[in-house]
């Protein structure tokens, strides 16, 4: 454990992504468990907006931020990193729009 760590305000430090990855992960455990076990039964709770909303929003962020971390581990080229990040953004925005379509269609 790092004691006495203080955020110094660097915009590009990755601290916000790191923190949001952990917060979203903990929330996702709850909503995915509710969705999964509810869908096995009647699906009543699993299809509510209060479950699907955070599941899609935080799920897409958590997924693509995780993919970005993997990319940063294995891709050295700055240009390729930017290209792959742009692809992640396109996939993420598309998935978010489709998720809204799915939720609104329920």
């Amino acid at each position: 454990m790092i004691k006495g760590y203080k955020y110094n305000g660097h915009g590009d430090s990755g601290l916000f992504e790191w923190l949001l990855q952990r917060v979203s992960g903990v929330i996702l455990i709850v909503v995915i468990a509710v969705h999964f076990f509810s869908m096995i039964k009647s699906g009543e709770w699993g299809l509510k907006s209060i479950v699907l909303g955070p599941l899609f929003a935080l799920g897409i962020f958590h997924t693509l931020n995780g993919f970005k971390a993997i990319t940063d581990d294995y891709v050295k080229s700055t240009i390729w990193r930017a290209i792959i990040l742009a692809i992640y953004w396109i996939v993420g925005v598309t998935a978010a729009v489709l998720a809204l379509k799915v939720v609104s269609g329920l």
């Binding site: 899609f56 799920g59 897409i60 997924t63 998935a95 489709l98 998720a99 799915v102």
Partner: peptide, 9 residues
């Protein structure tokens, strides 16, 4: 997750 969303849509 991504394919699930694309599939449901």
């Amino acid at each position: 997750l991504l394919l699930h969303i694309f599939g449901k849509a």
